[in-house]
Design a protein around this nucleic acid. Structure first.
Lengths: 228, 228
DNA sequence: GGCGCAATCGAACGTTCGTTTGAATGCCCG
DNA sequence: CGGGCATTCAAACGAACGTTCGATTGCGCC
């Protein structure tokens, strides 16, 4: 009677019972968590949007936090896999003699996530991820172990690509670079408001170029403080 | 019986009645809104932390949103005033012939806010502001009119300082620059977690230098997309 | 001394929250 | 055909929410 946090049934096992309530719950929760926030979203809103019974959430995911965790893991795993794959490709080239270009490293890290933002079914999740940086709450800390492997691998790669930077400086600049990415993921729909309408529409792949150019320039900035 | 949203009584008018409940409510709410979030903070937590009665919030501020608005306006007005003052000083020099250095423009915009983050009593507010970029909810939209004047003035100044950038590009890069600032405000306490402990401690004024250097380099990045 | 008023208070309002329960439902397999 | 099982369902749980109410307090001023 209580599968609690069981893995989903094998994908092609046959016609799932009821058009997969589990999936509809994940989709609805993803949208609502992104649109409002975790705290501001009630399970009644989620189940209503999913056309499911209120108790379905606790049946399939154990709790509201379990639902959040499932929403998150469903999308972040493929992204992190692709990130690691791209990084491995770059490092293979590096071992073969050609050094890693900073922009390529940034793309390997950022493009998998930004790709999501331009797909119809990933837009909500992108907004959700963008808030991981600034939103407090234990629903996030319960999930950021998923980033550990990717993070440390990329930090090492960046350190190799920018050997002249002292570790502390590099750390802060990476923090900034990741921050810009998150801000873009969270607020692409808000940039008009924030810049007062100055920034017009831009094709998504161009925004990625802008992001990579901005972050790369920031990471490569001269070491000491320049102005003033 | 109902002052609702009245302005606070004149500052030096005499010994305020009860050790200023109003002020204690603002302080407690500021900390809790920053520490948790607006949605996750209850008025009962606020009034308990302030040592006030539950009804005091609705008496002094009309509603929870009114409390949030008051928390915000109390701090943002001096900050925006200083920003405008610094900008005016730069523009005066500009009119006198010496062009505005991009780094100085960034400092005029960012230093007043970052100063807050290194003062004991402004730290919580800094964290709160940092979430304005990514946190949804009407408590924010009810307050962002306060940024209109500062925003448009600075956007014009940046456009003058970077005349070679097409407006769309400038808009996105300003969005990125403001985003980095917010990320720093929101997450200075989280950078260790996010970069995996690579970034060590850094004196706050050095972090400001790093932020300005990063943003300036990003804003000045070559126009088209550089690498691939 | 007593009126008026701003402020605080305890208590309750009606809602909504996340979670739990136990009974129905529909399907597969023996 | 019928027992077992995963799933769905309506209903209720106690707790906590934002807000409102009327009474009470304490001070300044005629």
């Amino acid at each position: 009677m209580l599968p609690r946090d069981s893995a989903q049934p094998p994908p092609g096992v046959g016609p799932v019972p009821g058009a997969d309530t589990r999936q509809r719950l994940l989709d609805a929760a993803e949208r609502l968590f992104a649109e409002r926030s975790y705290e501001a979203t009630s399970l009644r809103q989620v189940t209503a949007a999913a056309g499911a019974n209120l108790a379905a959430v606790n049946y399939h995911f154990g709790s509201k936090q379990g639902l959040f965790r499932a929403v998150f893991l469903r999308r972040i795993e493929p992204i992190n896999t692709e990130r690691m794959g791209r990084l491995a490709a770059l490092e293979a080239g590096e071992a073969a003699g050609q050094p890693v270009v900073l922009e390529e490293l940034l793309r390997a890290l950022m493009e998998p996530a930004l790709d999501l933002a331009r797909q119809e079914d990933g837009r909500w999740f992108a907004r959700l991820v963008g808030r991981a940086f600034s939103e407090p709450g234990e629903h996030w800390t319960a999930v950021d172990a998923e980033f550990h492997e990717v993070r440390s691998a990329f930090v090492r790669a960046f350190a190799r690509s920018l050997p002249h930077l002292p570790p502390t400086t590099l750390g802060w600049r990476l923090f900034f670079a990741l921050g810009v990415q998150c801000v873009l993921l969270a607020g692409a729909s808000q940039h008009q408001r924030i810049t007062g309408g100055l920034a017009g529409d831009l094709a998504p792949e161009v925004v990625l170029d802008e992001l990579v150019a901005f972050a790369a320039a920031g990471l490569r900035a001269p070491a000491g403080e320049p102005g003033t």
